[in-house]
């Protein structure tokens, strides 16, 4: 098969980008989309030209590195999978394919199709954890957790942090990402003690990073490689409202139990 690729090229964060057209020849239908791009890049490298920069690592849909907007859809035309799981048999021979990076203010472009997604890490650092020290944990079976609840928590926890939700959102909002983490921990007893603080600090961080707000259009859900449900966004909203109610009865700034005394 042969394809015409219109690929976004941008040398560095500050330089202006543009589309460049490439031909991909001798593509097998069993090749993955990324292997097809590998082929194009090998041709460029052999000519001494700089290959198209794009992210990939595990190539089995779990690390969340790959991040291409293919013909206007993050991760391409198939639902419930990441770019690396997309195969060329999905495209008709001779098709023209436009490839763009995730586009969001919070995800500045590093080069070509590679963006900086550290904003998501910073949102996690703001509260996406249970503050427990290593050691001294009680036996795992002391906490009994309903099977259904554990399964729902797992549904939320399966987020791979790729950022497709942001890329797909009209408002470049990271609500589905935050919702997945907040819901995962809010559903489990381990996460309960910090749920009030967590939802606020994570959402504040999300706003700070320059993501937009949720328009309830659910494009995020449609492109999520793990099919994370937007019902978790409702959970997040509920958690946030709850935090507003609960917090009004508490001191404004609860003392951190881990503040260094020295």
């Amino acid at each position: 098969m042969t394809f015409t690729l219109k690929i976004w090229r941008q040398k560095s964060p500050d330089e202006k980008g543009r589309f460049v057209t490439y031909k991909a020849h001798d593509v097998g239908s069993g090749m993955s989309f990324l292997e097809m791009l590998d082929g194009v890049n090998q041709g460029l490298i052999a000519k001494g030209e700089e290959p198209v920069a794009f992210e990939q690592d595990c190539r089995e849909g779990i690390c969340g590195s790959c991040s291409l907007v293919i013909n206007g859809i993050p991760h391409g035309p198939d639902r419930g999978m990441s770019t690396c799981q997309l195969y060329m048999r999905r495209f008709p021979d001779g098709a023209a394919i436009t490839i763009e990076p995730w586009r969001a203010r919070a995800f500045p472009i590093i080069k070509d199709l590679v963006v900086d997604r550290r904003a998501l890490d910073r949102v996690m650092q703001a509260g996406g954890y249970v503050s427990v020290n290593t050691g001294g944990a009680v036996d795992g079976n002391v906490l009994l957790i309903e099977k259904d609840q554990a399964e729902t928590a797992m549904d939320a926890a399966s987020c791979i942090g790729c950022g497709a939700c942001v890329a797909a959102c009209k408002n470049a909002s990271a609500m589905l990402f935050v919702a997945a983490k907040v819901s995962h921990l809010a559903l489990l007893p381990q996460g309960k003690p910090e749920r009030t603080r967590r939802v606020k600090t994570m959402l504040d961080a999300m706003d700070r990073e320059g993501f937009g707000s949720c328009g309830n259009q659910y494009e995020c859900e449609a492109v999520c490689p793990k099919r994370i449900s937007v019902r978790f966004i409702a959970t997040l909203n509920r958690e946030y409202l709850r935090a507003g109610v609960v917090e009004s009865g508490l001191p404004a700034e609860p003392e951190s139990p881990h503040a260094e005394s020295a």
Binding site: Y129, T134, L144, A157, L188, Q190
Partner: peptide, 22 residues
């Protein structure tokens, strides 16, 4: 054995039985 306890404490959603046990 400690690893499992630690991971549960961190909120790892291990598979559970209907009775709520791991």
């Amino acid at each position: 054995a400690q690893i499992i306890d630690q991971c549960v404490a961190l909120g790892v959603p291990f598979a559970r039985e209907y009775g709520g046990q791991l």
